[in-house]
């Protein structure tokens, strides 16, 4: 399922959040939207999901050739994982995951047995089988994160959208989840976009990196390409390649991420 974004503009009042975004994500790709805060990356993700709408004008969004620009969020079938997870506190883990199936119209709603089977399968895949009856506020951050992911996957989304998926977790869990997500993606091959401000995270997990800054796409490329050939000063600066004396320069992956993690605290 490919995602095509054509000349999307978005202004909030007088602030230009996005100024003409064109982007094509191929079927089965895992793409990171990387940029500093205020670069418009979360806005772009929300526009794809239909939670925010582009300014009136020529902009379009296609899911696998279908124009979804005029569709409400509930009609788009985009799996969205929120930074806060947004789990339904009054439902068990099982019911959270089953929610997207239960709200379907009677004609397309799976039978109770099918729902059971599908939810249990997902619980197994995110390694939460024994937590099915628990309520979200009794789970750890990493577990909640996986419930949110399973819930998004339950509707067989056309595209998976993750907003700062590891943002709220502590460093160790974050590392584990990154690897797990990459492995998970190898299995499912679901077209995925995720937003992050952490370059190590973007480089480690994704097939391609989209660097956003000041409402525009500054560069698109594989992690290796971007690192080897920064397109402009913005990218150089953002990646910390500008200042030779900095400790964070090219590859010592662990040092770099730790330094940023400390910053974030």
């Amino acid at each position: 399922m490919s995602v095509v974004i054509e000349s999307i503009h978005k202004t909030f009042g007088r602030f230009n959040a996005l100024e003409g975004i064109d982007l094509k994500v191929e079927t089965g790709e895992l793409v990171a939207l990387l940029g500093p805060s205020g670069s418009g990356k979360t806005t772009l993700l929300r526009i794809i999901a239909g939670l925010e709408f582009p300014d009136d004008g020529p902009g379009n969004i296609f899911f696998h050739g279908t124009d979804v620009t005029e569709r409400d969020a509930y009609e788009r079938r985009a799996g969205f994982v929120f930074q806060s997870y947004a789990l339904f506190q009054h439902m068990t883990v099982f019911e959270n995951i089953a929610f997207g199936l239960r709200v379907r119209s009677r004609a397309t709603r799976p039978s109770e047995a099918e729902i059971n089977a599908r939810v249990n399968d997902l619980l197994g895949r995110v390694q939460l089988t024994q937590f099915a009856k628990r309520f979200p506020n009794t789970l750890s951050g990493g577990q909640r994160q996986r419930v949110a992911l399973a819930r998004a996957l339950a509707i067989e989304p056309r595209v998976l959208l993750l907003d700062e998926p590891f943002g709220a977790l502590d460093a160790k869990v974050r590392k584990e989840l990154r690897r797990w997500l990459r492995a998970f993606h190898e299995q499912t091959r679901l077209t995925t976009l995720f937003v992050t401000h952490d370059q190590e995270e973007a480089f480690e997990v994704s097939d391609r990196v989209v660097i956003l800054g000041e409402g525009r796409i500054q560069q698109i490329g594989s992690p290796a390409e971007v690192r080897a050939n920064p397109a402009n000063d913005f990218v150089r600066k953002f990646l910390g390649l500008d200042d030779e004396s900095e400790l964070l320069i090219p590859s010592p992956l662990h040092e770099g991420s730790r330094a940023r993690e400390l910053d974030a605290v």
């Binding site: 239909g50 939670l51 009136d56 620009t69 005029e70 409400d72």
Partner: peptide
């Protein structure tokens, strides 16, 4: 003439 979707 665009249909403006409704906020969720």
């Amino acid at each position: 003439r665009r249909r403006i979707p409704r906020k969720a």
